[in-house]
Design a protein around this nucleic acid. Structure first.
Lengths: 223, 223
DNA sequence: TATAGAAACTTTCTCTTAGAAAGTATTATA
DNA sequence: TATAATACTTTCTAAGAGAAAGTTTCTATA
């Protein structure tokens, strides 16, 4: 049962170490040597597994997005209604273990790599499409006509905005505030019909509890 | 009438050149030598006027924000009602000469400098506060109670989100779409009362015309 | 089980970069 | 005209990215 190759394991370790380096030193302060140091290997090993620094950062970027995606899937597993799936999306983005200063700062730092890296752009585009599709799917239950995709797109953009703002400053971001902003905006965009249902509040409580269990601190920063 | 010192002029030239370098090569590809090359001076001159690379990037960041601010002031000069001032804010953020691929990409690239640069954080915080205050001031006319600041904050975050998404990809961002998204969200958040007034549509047309004249392409990329 | 070849890892070298330092030229001021 | 500040240049060093070539360790197959 050794399905994963050594290379694949190393690549995971190294992109994890690179993520840690970006957290600690910022994008400009992240050097191959520091990445190697954190991973406990020499700089040469890093370049053996990644053709260059861009490829490494690309892997970090990809991993971050897949962690986010995985978190959502963990919550989806227990979400049984549109309300609950809506909150699953919210908590996948704004739980303490994900939406915190370190991770948000690292994400903002990594963003700088995207404009000049076609692969990162593809990853990011896929990610945006995914979250739009997820949101759109749930919003269909609360919106008539074909407004759902546009509203979903807007909410996706808002999530990005909330994340960026959290990543720019040295203050611990406020999860509860972010969740409320997201909910607040959604309620207004769908015409507040969500709020009338008790299901909505109940769903939040349920997903909140599940998130606390399912989204441990090992997600982004293992060990 | 030589009020500005040579140093001050050089600093402007150099931060302009650095902005151009970030556009062309991205944050990681921007070196002091390339900045000097664009400005037509040697690398030494750059370091003579800026103590180090962080100080240079800080100046670029500061200048970008002040250009944005200046654009807003130019439109405010002709805005004579809350409707018009609302659209002045919208067009200051989403006119072709400002909201375009190059500028948005550069902005996203520069963001990576913020998490590890206290000065940039202060500039950005001031900027966020300013836009919130501006929006809040106009929204007061359309919202009862003390909801205006919260809504203003949300819309500010949305603007950031729209900008980030525009900066990540290699596609020319769509100004009209951005303006509509911003308007759309605002209308829903204030309860669509804006939309009932003909003033609102008229105001948009007026400011649109003024923006075309007042916000020339020399704003971000002179010469 | 011997061995070829691939994969993992190391070491060394080169070129580029940031930035320090110490110099020269230019301009302002007394 | 002397002197001091400002503008700019040149040179040097240390650190970084990445290429290249070497060595060890695994793994498949004859």
């Amino acid at each position: 049962m050794q399905a994963r190759s050594i290379s694949s394991i190393r690549r995971t370790e190294l992109s994890q170490a690179a993520f840690e380096a970006v957290i600690r030193y910022g994008l400009r302060g992240t050097t191959l040597e520091k990445v190697g140091e954190i991973a406990g290997v020499s700089k040469g090993v890093v370049l053996h597994h990644f053709k260059d620094k861009s490829a490494l950062l690309e892997a970090v970027f990809r991993r971050s997005n897949s962690v986010l995606n995985m978190s959502l899937l963990r919550l989806y597993r227990h979400a049984e209604s549109p309300y609950e799936r809506f909150w699953a999306i919210a908590y996948a983005n704004f739980s303490e273990t994900i939406y915190n200063r370190e991770v948000c700062q690292a994400w903002v730092s990594l963003l700088a790599e995207v404009p000049h890296n076609a692969m990162c752009q593809r990853v990011q585009a896929a990610n945006n499409a995914r979250i739009k599709s997820n949101l759109s799917h749930e919003l269909r239950h609360f919106l008539e006509g074909d407004r759902a995709p546009d509203v979903a797109n807007l909410l996706g953009t808002l999530i990005d905005g909330i994340w960026v703002r959290a990543g720019l400053f040295a203050i611990t971001p406020d999860c509860e505030k972010a969740l409320n902003e997201f909910e607040f905006t959604t309620l207004y965009l769908v015409g507040a019909s969500l709020d009338e249902e008790k299901h909505h509040k109940d769903a939040r409580e349920k997903i909140k509890t599940i998130a606390k269990i399912a989204l441990g601190p090992e997600l982004f920063r293992p060990q």
